[in-house]
Simulated scan of single mutants.
Amino acid sequence: MWKNEKGFTLIEMLIVLLVISVLLIITIPNLSQNTENIRNKGCDALKVTVEAQLEAYQVENNAVPTIDELESGDYIKTKECPDGTSLTIVDGKVVEAAGE
């Protein structure tokens, strides 16, 4: 009488879609929160890199450079953090630019 038809029923498909929707609802807000943390850590990592290149410039040139001299001399590629904050050099130390 009944043929053995293989496949998913409508109820099974709806349950699968419900499970996928719940997983997406849970993960998307977590990704947004982690993006902010990654940007902040990216700025910290850039500061460490710029400090290392600052020391390399000082060893090679016996002078304290500006952030623009480091960038134009190919010591660093950018002076801007992933979150948009600019870095500068004050008294031989790398700091976030004022007013950012």
Rank of each mutant, 00 (worst) to 15 (best):
1 M>K: 10
2 W>M: 11
3 K>R: 14
3 K>E: 15
4 N>M: 10
4 N>H: 11
5 E>K: 14
6 K>S: 09
10 L>R: 10
12 E>Y: 05
13 M>R: 13
13 M>L: 15
14 L>C: 02
14 L>I: 12
14 L>T: 06
15 I>G: 04
15 I>C: 03
16 V>C: 08
16 V>I: 13
17 L>F: 12
17 L>K: 02
18 L>T: 14
18 L>Q: 06
20 I>S: 11
21 S>A: 12
22 V>R: 00
23 L>K: 02
23 L>R: 02
24 L>Q: 05
25 I>M: 07
27 T>N: 11
28 I>C: 00
28 I>A: 13
29 P>D: 03
30 N>Y: 12
30 N>A: 10
30 N>L: 14
30 N>P: 00
31 L>M: 15
31 L>V: 03
31 L>A: 11
32 S>K: 12
32 S>Q: 09
33 Q>I: 13
34 N>T: 07
34 N>I: 08
36 E>W: 03
37 N>T: 11
38 I>S: 09
38 I>E: 06
38 I>V: 11
39 R>K: 15
39 R>A: 05
40 N>I: 12
40 N>T: 11
40 N>E: 13
41 K>F: 06
42 G>K: 06
42 G>N: 04
42 G>Y: 05
42 G>F: 07
44 D>E: 14
45 A>I: 05
47 K>C: 02
49 T>N: 11
49 T>L: 13
49 T>V: 07
51 E>C: 00
51 E>G: 04
52 A>V: 02
53 Q>K: 15
53 Q>E: 15
54 L>D: 00
54 L>H: 06
55 E>L: 11
58 Q>W: 06
58 Q>K: 15
58 Q>V: 09
58 Q>I: 14
59 V>C: 00
59 V>H: 08
59 V>R: 14
60 E>C: 03
60 E>I: 07
61 N>T: 14
61 N>H: 15
61 N>W: 09
63 A>N: 01
63 A>V: 09
63 A>P: 00
63 A>Y: 03
64 V>Y: 00
64 V>C: 01
65 P>V: 08
66 T>N: 01
68 D>P: 00
70 L>A: 03
71 E>M: 13
71 E>W: 01
73 G>N: 08
74 D>L: 14
77 K>V: 05
77 K>T: 10
78 T>V: 04
79 K>H: 11
81 C>T: 01
81 C>L: 03
81 C>E: 02
82 P>W: 04
82 P>R: 06
83 D>N: 15
83 D>H: 10
83 D>V: 02
83 D>P: 01
84 G>C: 04
84 G>Y: 03
85 T>A: 13
86 S>A: 07
88 T>V: 09
88 T>F: 04
89 I>F: 06
89 I>M: 06
90 V>G: 00
90 V>D: 03
91 D>R: 02
91 D>T: 03
91 D>Q: 13
92 G>I: 10
92 G>H: 08
92 G>V: 10
93 K>T: 10
94 V>W: 03
94 V>Y: 05
94 V>P: 04
95 V>T: 15
96 E>D: 12
96 E>V: 05
97 A>E: 15
97 A>I: 02
97 A>W: 00
98 A>H: 04
98 A>L: 09
98 A>Q: 09
99 G>H: 08
99 G>R: 08
100 E>S: 12
100 E>M: 12
